[in-house]
Design a protein around this nucleic acid. Structure first.
Lengths: 229, 229
DNA sequence: GGATGTGAAGTAGTTCACAGCC
DNA sequence: GGCTGTGAACTACTTCACATCC
């Protein structure tokens, strides 16, 4: 009780979406042998204001040094703790088409606590083949215990797959199918929809307004809260 | 001047991100032969509140009927106009790995005005092959005129590719590489980062809080504005 | 009756400006 | 001197509640 345990108290949704960016920046500076970084530098690389960076980071506790900025290794560690990277997340991927392959073969997807547990598909030509070191299983087989389910199937099959994953006690779904899915309360669903991202870009191109570069800006998925029932 | 032209005046960023969802819902109801839908139904399917739906739609002008909801075909049309779907957007995709293939082969990516103009890669084994009806070109060839560039290359190559696209007069970039890129002012950049989406989900799983399902909720990329200079 | 569209209120997030500490 | 951390002001978005119209 003497050691003040870090307090990962509620972070706002926009903050949560920005932390991984800061962490990636910190990591990249570590690799380049840099020790320190200040909020202005982070801001420029992340495409936000320096004040926002400081607010976000202040939410994790006191981790900077006044007058000298932040130590990148501390940044990396604290953000990792805040995001829960000290825990392990078993990930199953359903649908091993181009997208599923792209995800599991990417060196940037399954990182920071996330580890691949199993792959599933329904195509007999894909089942039994090895992808990313895992033999693809049939969806008729039982789903292995896991924390996160990634849905990379055609829209028409998304709901069915979601039901299956929920039944297997998986409470976090990342849905790449452009299809809204219903889940029982208590299951976190996060959607990624390429077409929508493209359409947002099209809107801005059409209107001149909006996210113009210059510096950098990133766009991140934000989840809308929803009242129960 | 007599006919009150529709006014696509400034829409908020969250609204822009939700409109494609509403449009998809409208489209799906049209396919099922339904004519009308009300804000409550849209809300449930989209994972937002009915009030939010009405506000968003009211921003496009008066397109509902009091007491009777919205006509789905009108919804579809008006949202399309607001998002600029009446124009054509030539899209070039750079990096024809699993992800690039997944995008161009998806029946849901290049829709609503977006059309594939050309594919590029640097791998001699990929160059010259046909993907989605297009022969993959070498990046050493000139970039064809286009509106949007989609970057599906490894992070280390992303900046170089972005420079190339900007030089080819492309002002909208959709970057799938987990890498911040710098562009001159006037270029809209939109990032899609799978790993970040997964990390956000991990945070919520870890904290119980956040986007719990029940109804549906979607998460969409939002772009942060950035001051000039 | 029923659902839209919208002022008004409320909430969340960002930016300003500066005190505090190195 | 410089940069963090933060109260205070501001802006943006959402939600409430209801007048309005079919």
């Amino acid at each position: 009780m003497a050691t003040p345990r870090l307090r990962p108290r509620k972070l706002s949704e926009p903050t949560i979406a920005r932390l991984p960016v800061y962490q990636r920046i910190a990591e990249s500076w570590m690799q380049r042998g840099q020790n320190r970084i200040d909020s202005r530098q982070i801001a420029e690389l992340a495409g936000v204001t320096a004040t926002t960076v400081r607010r976000d980071l202040a939410g994790l506790g006191t981790l900077g040094t006044r007058g000298a900025g932040y130590e990148v290794s501390v940044l990396n560690d604290r953000i990792g703790e805040a995001l829960g990277h000290d825990r392990k997340y078993d990930v199953v991927v359903v649908g091993i088409g181009n997208l599923g392959r792209a995800l599991v073969n990417s060196s940037n997807f399954l990182i920071r606590g996330a580890q691949l547990a199993a792959l599933y598909d329904v195509d007999p030509e894909i089942i039994g083949t090895e992808v990313a070191g895992h033999v693809v299983r049939s969806l008729t087989e039982p789903i292995v215990p896991a924390t996160v389910g990634v849905i990379c199937v055609p829209p028409a099959a998304a709901q069915e797959v979601a039901d299956l994953l929920v039944k297997a006690n998986i409470h976090g779904l990342l849905n790449f199918a452009p299809q809204v899915i219903t889940t029982p309360l208590g299951t976190a669903v996060h959607y990624v929809d390429f077409s929508i991202e493209l359409q947002i870009l099209m809107y801005h191109l059409n209107n001149g307004t909006g996210p113009l570069g210059g510096g950098l800006l990133h766009s991140l998925g934000l989840a809308n809260p929803l009242r129960g029932s």
